[in-house]
Structure formats: C-alpha cells, structure tokens
Design a protein around this nucleic acid. Structure first.
Lengths: 204, 204
DNA sequence: CGTTAGTTTGAGAGGACTCAAAGTCTGTGG
DNA sequence: CCACAGACTTTGAGTCCTCTCAAACTAACG
C-alpha cells in the first residue's frame, strides 16, 4: 500500500470514522471492528470524479478530508445538488439504494481522503449487528432534514434570499470553493452571484 | 367515540397501517399491537391546518385517506415543499426531530383521515422493539430519496421541465388538486403553469 | 341559475440569463 | 523576487422568461 506522506493512513481513517459513529450512536465493538476492517481508503484528486453518471454506485463514502459535490448534467449546464465536507457520508443515493445507474456525478472539489464501504457489507451488518439499524436510522433522520433544507433553499425565488440562506448555513464553504460551484448549488449563474455579493459586501 | 358513517373506523385505520408496515418490513406482533393501540385517529377537513407554523409538532401522521401539503409562508407568498396522499407518513420534520416550533404549515387539500402517533411512543418502541429501528431505517431511506427528488425538481430552471418532471412522478395528483398548489410546489405562478399546460395539451 | 372556486388569457415590467470583456488572484519557473 | 499563465471574479449591455396585475372565461355546486 503506497501511502504518501501527506495522505491520511488507514489507522487515522478508522479513528476518524469511529469517532463519528460514537458521536452519533455508539455501536458494539464487534460492529465497529467489522466495518473498519471492511473499509478501504480512497484518495481522489481535486477535479476528478468519484462517481460518474451512468455508472453503478455500490459504495458509501465517508469524507475524512476534502470537499465534494454532487451534480447532474442538464444539457450544457450542471445542476449542483449538494456540497459536502469532512465527517459526512456521501454516495449517489438513488444508485446506492435502488441498484440503478447513477444520474448524478460526484466530483472532488479538493484533494480528498475517503473511506469506502460496500453496500453488501452494510446490509450484512444490519443482520449481524442489529444496533447498526439504529445508528443508520439516526443518520438518515439528519440527512433527511438536510435534504429538506436543500429543497427549501432551491425553492426560494429570489437570488438574494438564496445567498443569504447559504451564508447562514454553509458559510464554512464560502472561502473554500470557487463561486461557480456555489452559484450552481444556488441555481443561479456565476455572474448573478457575483453581482449579489458586490451589493452586500460594502455593508460591513 | 363519535364516528360518522363516512369516516374510517379505528379498526380500518389499524388495518391500513399494519398493511403498510408489513409491506415494508414486517415487525413483531407485539410491536404492531403496541403501535396500533397508541395510535389515535384524526379527521381533518379540507382547507384546515394539521400543523401551523409556530406550533410544536410532536406527532407523526399516517395518511389513511386524503391529500395534504406542507408549505412555508414567505412574505405574501407560500412555498409548497411537498404534497402527499394515501399510505404515506407526514410530519413537520424539523419540529418533530428537533423539538422546535414548526416553520412549515401542513394543510389538508381534501377531507383527510389520519392516524397519529406521539414522538415519545415512537422513541419507546426503538428500545422495546428493536426491529422498529430497521423498519424506520428503510422508511427513511425511501423518504430521503424523495426529498432528493424534490430538491432536484426545484433546481430545474425551466418551468416547462419542472412540469414534465411532475407529470412523470406525481401524475396521480394532477386531476385531484387545484393547479395553484401544483404551481406553488413547482415554484412558479399559477398563470405560468396554465400557459405551459396550454402549450402542451394540444399535442395529444 | 347564481355564486364561487378554479383556470385561462392579455399586456407590461423586472430580474436573471447570455455573451463578452476586463480585472484580480495565485502559484510556478526563471 | 519578478513575470507570466491560468483560474477565478467582476462588470457591462442587451434579451428573454417569468412575474404582476387585470380581466374574462369555465366548472362545480347548492
């Protein structure tokens, strides 16, 4: 295993993952041992795709380091549906659960370190370690709320309102990723976002 | 208990609920007995609110009959975030899970028959009947996907595209509820929706 | 039939888009 | 340490789609 000096080691990855689990819903040592043994590290470069549309996505990913986005190609333009950073889980939802080709692409917006687990391993754990159901249930409750929030932000008709909502909930991403991705996430053009920012900035 | 002749009886409600559960993930008889015993029927008239913004929503509702929508008041306009019919579960997500006042309103678009369960009863079941975790986990997987779909539809920039997506996924609601709610759900005005429909209709 | 809810049609205004060009920042190599 | 290249952001001008306001039309129901 070729681990460069600036890459996170498997041990560190397992530690970060365990910490995340324990913070949400502690599971048995057996379950944690199993999952960390079955996880593989994934290192992906800024700009490259973790999942491409048309491919099957059979894995769930845990973000150890970096930022990623999910987007759907819509003719000549891209629709960014989510942007996610450290300590979150990502996958192509519909592909992962329905075993159909992914519609969305998942792109690394920075060099990323991920831990990945196969759908089959996860399904095995539901029966072998029933408490994993409770853990995932709680995780999904949170992600469901996040999805509702995304749906809500997307429905705001005024571009200014969308941007304000964004800086209230995702300000940590503001100076970390190019504006074009934020614009795409907010459903407006780069130029419109730039104009909104220029109107707001002088007020501080 | 005053049950009018056109209202669904408690026994029928419990039957509909049990059928829904068994179709998704059969749980123990004990769990099913418990939940159906703790459930209360709710009858609500077309046009009235099941949940009002500002109130706490401590209940989860199962739709036995009727159609409901969730919407957020945004100045003078309403943003409809979801529309749901029979055999689905509804609640004010953020209020139910975070125990904060609801932002959204839930309105009956038809006379509705619901079954309701309190958050505390649900939480009790997670420990008393652990298999309920698996059931809810699976339900949430589905609802999460639906929420993603809603977020996606809302991000489509062209009004025509949104309407097409709607008739592909929610056509059963088309002739059941007034256009103004569909327009609100799709993030456009009633007039715009009407114009889109007039352009499409003659092609069949 | 009249009343009301629901839908369609019309005209004008405005916000966001497109296309285009000019700045600005950042990292790399000389 | 500077200069350049490429990525990123801002600014400008004109167009188009959707919105708003208004009125007419239609359907459903008592």
């Amino acid at each position: 295993m070729n681990v460069e000096k600036n890459q996170t080691s498997s041990v560190e990855i397992a530690g970060a993952f365990s910490a995340m689990v324990n913070a949400i819903y502690p599971v048995s040592k057996e379950a944690l041992d199993y999952v960390t043994k079955r996880m593989s590290p994934v290192y992906i470069q800024k700009g490259s795709l973790l999942v491409s549309s048309g491919q099957h996505c059979d894995h769930l990913y845990f973000v150890v380091k970096g930022v990623l986005r999910g987007y759907v190609q819509q003719g000549t333009k891209e629709i960014t549906t989510w942007i996610t950073a450290e300590n979150e889980l990502v996958t192509s939802i519909s592909s992962f659960y329905q075993k159909v080709p992914s519609i969305e692409n998942i792109e690394a917006l920075e060099d990323c370190t991920l831990a990945t687990i196969h759908r089959d391993d996860l399904n095995y754990m539901y029966t072998a370690f029933p408490e994993v159901n409770a853990f995932v249930r709680i995780v999904l409750e949170k992600y469901y709320q996040d999805a509702e929030e995304r749906a809500y932000i997307a429905r705001l008709t005024e571009a200014t309102g969308k941007y304000h909502r964004f800086i209230n909930t995702k300000s940590h991403l503001l100076n970390r990723i190019p504006l074009k991705f934020i614009a795409s996430y907010l459903g407006m053009t780069l130029e419109t976002l730039s104009r909104i920012r220029s109107k707001i900035t002088y007020s501080r």
